[in-house]
Design a protein around this nucleic acid. Structure first.
Lengths: 201, 201
DNA sequence: CCTCTTTTCTATTGTGCTATAGAATCGAGT
DNA sequence: ACTCGATTCTATAGCACAATAGAAAAGAGG
């Protein structure tokens, strides 16, 4: 009893897989990896629990797919920002905006909270993606320091982690209180960060 | 077959309960609430799984106890800081130091990550504690703004959340990389925060 | 309409986990 | 030594879940 029959061309295959991964992301984000059952995921898709195993060998494989798909889009977009010719402050602002964007929030939250439950090999694979991301941000910070736009006494590594930490905490906050909108939060965070990093005039 | 027989006076009762809660905190922090079994907790204590139910009515009750015990100590210490006659900047620094102190890290991490799995009523009880904590920090920020020590255009609420977010992200980072020590991290974070909040000279 | 591939289904197996019931043991005070 | 409450134990019920096997259905292409 599927909701809607869709034409299934060579691209439709890929799309369906994305839907399944998206459903897993949604459920893992809501209930946590261990708290979520494969039945929960199947319910979102309107299919039977066992049918999921056509797409994944195991629940853990589903978690890895969510982490990977979520993060790959992230890295790509980040490298775009890094390559642009904006000032370092603008880049920092864009990174924060993008990092804590409320669009693919499910993927972000699963990555943040659940990746640690991946088995060793998978965790190392995901960690490799993560390092690329962190290093790209760190290069933006270092570039800002070299150009004199940021203070010269910054610890670039710690500054990077602070930027990430702020972004992550923003993402974790959405939806908890009505008056804490993403816009208000990100504006304030960007303002704080830019002032903390910039040289004094 | 207990590891060590201890004298069990009127205070020993309380201590034993704390040990049990501490074991739960340790296990929940490591494996996550849903990923941890009551057997895991019993193993840490060297007792049988069923014996835990002498202390708790349910696994959920154990989670609430961990969240409560962890947070009560927090609030207490925070109010001390708030009452002191340090400058606002010093207070902010102390709050961050205390919030991300690596001592009772298990409790902190469980509170951060697992409290959302509490059932409605328990979650509301814990949320009440949380609000006291947030408001106490917010008062410190507001006081700094009023006294002219901090910028007057700060959004006190968002600044509070940023402070908490940085603290939380610091706590979440410990132990992931050797060269990221709590000292280095907290020093950098405090430096960033104080510069972000302070008026320019 | 037939065939082949893709996708979903039914049915089930085995495992691990929370929680309960009631018995045994411990330990302090008398 | 005896008693009584506090603490831990054995044993088990009962459920939820991940995963497998193999049959059915749904499309696409000829």
């Amino acid at each position: 009893m599927k909701a809607l029959a869709e034409p299934r061309g060579a691209a439709g295959v890929r799309r369906r897989l994305s839907e399944v991964i998206g459903a897993a992301a949604k459920v893992f984000a809501k209930r946590g990896y261990h708290g979520a059952s494969t039945q929960d995921i199947a319910d979102v898709l309107g299919i039977r629990q066992a049918s999921l195993y056509y797409y994944f060998d195991s629940k853990e494989a589903a978690l890895e797919a969510v982490c990977r798909e979520g993060h790959e889009a992230y890295v790509e977009r980040l490298l775009q920002i890094a390559r642009s010719d904006a000032t370092s402050s603008e880049k920092v602002a864009q990174v924060l905006l993008h990092h804590a964007a409320p669009e693919r929030l499910d993927f972000t939250l699963v990555f943040l909270r659940e990746r640690r439950f991946l088995p060793g090999p998978a965790r190392r694979r995901i960690r490799a993606l993560e390092l690329r991301y962190e290093r790209a941000i760190q290069r933006i910070v270092e570039q800002g320091i070299r150009s004199g736009e940021f203070r010269s006494d910054l610890d670039a590594r710690m500054t990077t982690l602070a930027l990430l930490g702020l972004g992550n905490s923003a993402a974790a906050w959405y939806g908890r209180e009505a008056d804490v909108t993403p816009e208000r939060m990100l504006r304030a965070y960007i303002d704080l960060l830019v002032r903390a990093l910039g040289v004094r005039h």
